[in-house]
Write a protein that binds this DNA or RNA. Structure first.
Lengths: 240, 240
DNA sequence: AAGTGGTCTAGACCACTAT
DNA sequence: TAGTGGTCTAGACCACTTC
């Protein structure tokens, strides 16, 4: 119970619980204290405890079940912004077979020249992974990923030959903040060859940076053939 | 006071107020009843009224000011998904002069062959507007817009020679739902000429469909040179 | 059947700010 | 300085769900 002195009571409780969840101390599936117990712990009324838990539930961090209690939810961070990026699920939703191929994997002692990552030091140790996601027999998406080994040291010992690094990462780093950058580029010769499209084809580039409470985690760049992909984001005001 | 019988008390009040705001009956800037008055109107406690107004504020539909009251907010629907699309603000934020040029404007009696709009009937009357947004002396973004004249009949009498249709629309249709589609294409000959880029340049295409409570409002397609534009979306779990 | 979350109340005190 | 939103309480009843 850290209970700093800033802010309102329920925002302090909220911050405490968020930290416990985001840090992984309370992993997905962990049961939170009941409302009455939480109220007793913090010496507040049940209404205040309820407000905190309701807010956590609305933010998607916990799931509440009557008679059972409140539980830390499974991480689905990026889905909330753009409903993409579980590439396997995306491919399968098109009724195509999903395939994964590791193309390259290096351990670097400094940031590569061709992919800037402003969040971390120039000499930070990194894993550098290039892989290809397939839909049926056709290339679907080219993935280039840097992983910060200071934040996720175990990544150095993973080969990523069978498991996409994204899947492995999400099991390691339970929750995170993310930022997406979306732009369009013409396929370079190398990209075109790997994606099996004509050189110069317009491609959609999605770059995502991810943070955990411990620091920057990963920078990943997805390149999709523009004619084979579309991002969709919906918005309804007032749904909160 | 519609006060249907479904759901909880505060969700009924919420639905009432949402309808008044989304329909435009309470336009942006309109002052809502004070918490005490709202509580009296619905015969509930102030806590319940507060919960409703707090929720509306968090959803961005209203803005609350101490001592003054609560006011319907300016519509900023699309900003909540991707922080773009007030192109003028975007250009000015780059410290460039903003310019606008109307290229074409037609009234159609049916959907055009080259731009599908699945939400509306094939023979719906439409305004079809092509315009160019400039940053300094260079083209910044090409805009092609269809407006549903059944939902927004006044658009038929607007020339859009001086005012971008987006600005005018937002003043007419107070709130809306939106859906974005983002993809990449190679510039066609016509697009390349208008944007002053080489033919075949990778371009970022953002297509937005907008609805009001009365029905589909507009379909707009923005085409940006890929090297001159980038979409950014941030996400922090737990911020609600 | 018991325990949990969901909701609501009537009242209170405080902080901020527009007047 | 008075009015408004922001927050909190102690208690209550209900509905649902698992035990």
């Amino acid at each position: 119970m850290t209970t700093e002195k800033e802010g309102t009571l329920h925002s302090r409780i909220l911050a405490d619980l968020e930290r416990l969840i985001l840090s992984g101390d309370w992993p997905p599936g962990h049961r939170l204290p009941f409302e009455v117990d939480l109220a007793a712990q913090y010496g507040c009324s049940r209404m205040t405890a309820n407000k905190v838990l309701t807010q956590l539930a609305r933010a998607g961090l916990i799931e509440r079940r009557k008679k059972s209690g409140s539980f830390v939810a499974q991480p689905v961070a990026q889905a909330a912004v753009l409903e993409i990026h579980d590439i396997e699920a995306e491919v399968r939703s098109l009724n195509l077979a999903y395939g994964y191929r590791l193309l390259k994997r290096n351990i670097l002692k400094a940031a590569p020249a061709d992919l800037a990552w402003p969040d971390i030091a120039q000499d930070a140790p990194l894993a550098d992974i290039l892989s290809l996601h397939m839909a049926g027999s056709r290339p679907f998406c080219l993935e280039r990923r840097l992983i910060n080994l200071q934040t996720v040291p175990d990544a150095a010992h993973q080969s990523f030959e069978e498991t996409p690094s994204g899947h492995w990462l999400i099991s390691q780093v339970p929750w995170s903040a993310a930022e997406h950058r979306i732009t369009a580029v013409s396929a370079t010769a190398e990209t075109a060859e790997l994606l099996d499209v004509p050189r110069g084809t317009a491609c959609l580039v999605v770059e995502r940076r991810t943070w955990s409470p411990d620091g920057p985690v990963t920078l990943v760049r997805f390149i999709y053939p523009g004619d084979r992909h579309e991002l969709v984001a919906r918005f309804q005001p007032g749904e909160s």
